[in-house]
Nucleic acid binder design. Structure first.
Lengths: 124, 124, 124, 124
DNA sequence: GTGGTCTAGACCACA
DNA sequence: GTGGTCTAGACCACA
């Protein structure tokens, strides 16, 4: 999976990496148990410092998405055993996005269509 | 409308203010043409630096949600003349939220239900 | 509260800081809502890099013990709303310590006495 | 006795092996004088590098739990001749665990109950 | 000033 | 080689 950094983004680099890996897992480009590039390899590939990759991996590990160990490098977790619910913070973000849509005159249907589209991405 | 700042939030204060005003407009608590408190008044009410409120107002003005004139202070715009579409950045955020939901095992239906709920908030 | 680093310790510096702050909260030397030193101040006081202090604070924040914001600096959280249970990892550690004690011939009573002593430290 | 490695654990493999053997001795699954598998045999059984098993055995030997001789291989010591006291480091760990418990609202009684449970494991 | 991010570079334990 | 830690130093947005 290719990680693409957005250049002028507000989102910090380590968060962008984290986000893209979560998306990769979500749409099936990254399979459970699949090996991720080593900290150094990814750092070199993207052209950033390895501490930054490390930070992204630490975050993903803490969130339960990946596992790191010195024997096997970094791998996507086999099972996520998370509560099947959006975290509160994500709900707040969604609420904000809906507000945004409403104010701008985006209809419920159009918004739903977007959600549909994103939900169907990747593994259908 | 009361602005409530979240204490330990990651979201910067100026952004919180901006977000809550957009939500207020979205759910009808703030009507088109309605007068907003002055920068100084709001700053005092919330107990923060007025530079921060100013920053929020500047952003809202630039986004086309409010307008200021020297005689009438700050008011919600009568009409927004915006393209009825989510900005690209918001779309990206939504995509990320959907990924997050999918990875966590939140179903399309549950996600849709949340969207429904938020869309119906306020002006129903 | 004074943070004391152990020199030759296996425990990484950022973890030592984290541990001592948790102990400080536990025994009442750090009160809910109390202000902690700034990242830079603590770094200088201990004589280490501020990134390391930052790392400790990030961890504490993520665990829900402290709050950081640009207005108020770093503060101990008012309420912890955690599940009143030891995390699995801590239970495993305790199990290991008990094994250690048993093998070495430390009696149940002696072990309990230690626990009592530590439980009574500080706020009695 | 079967050694089970935890996959994504923070605890290094050699330490996991050491810990489990100590627990085995503690709860009676390993008897004084009992023969342990050779380094190579255990390494093969677990599927790891024999250097790692060797490291675990070295540590156990140095701590006085096991002994090796060329003729009889590796065996659990008959008697441990240790001071019946927890090493300082273990005491510090226990102190930290108690802090953790207190901060999280785990009562003295609940903590004691855990200790009881672990003390009673195995040989009752 | 304050927390947060990022880099270049070094070093370490583990495997 | 691999993840992890730490430093010195720079820079940024926010307040």
């Amino acid at each position: 999976m290719v990680i693409m950094l957005q250049d002028g983004s507000e989102v910090p680099v380590f968060k962008q990496i984290r986000n893209q890996i979560v998306m990769g897992i979500s749409d099936g480009r990254l399979q459970p148990g699949e090996k991720l590039p080593t900290v150094r390899a990814l750092a070199e590939e993207i052209g950033i410092n390895s501490m930054t990759v490390n930070k992204a991996y630490q975050l993903l590990k803490q969130e339960g998405y990946i596992m790191t160990d010195r024997r096997n490098g970094v791998r996507v977790r086999e099972s996520f055993r998370m509560i099947p619910e959006l975290p509160l913070e994500s709900k707040e973000q969604l609420k904000q996005l809906v507000s945004e849509a409403r104010v701008r005159g985006v209809s419920r249907e159009e918004f739903m269509a977007l959600v549909e589209e994103y939900f169907s991405a990747g593994q259908g």
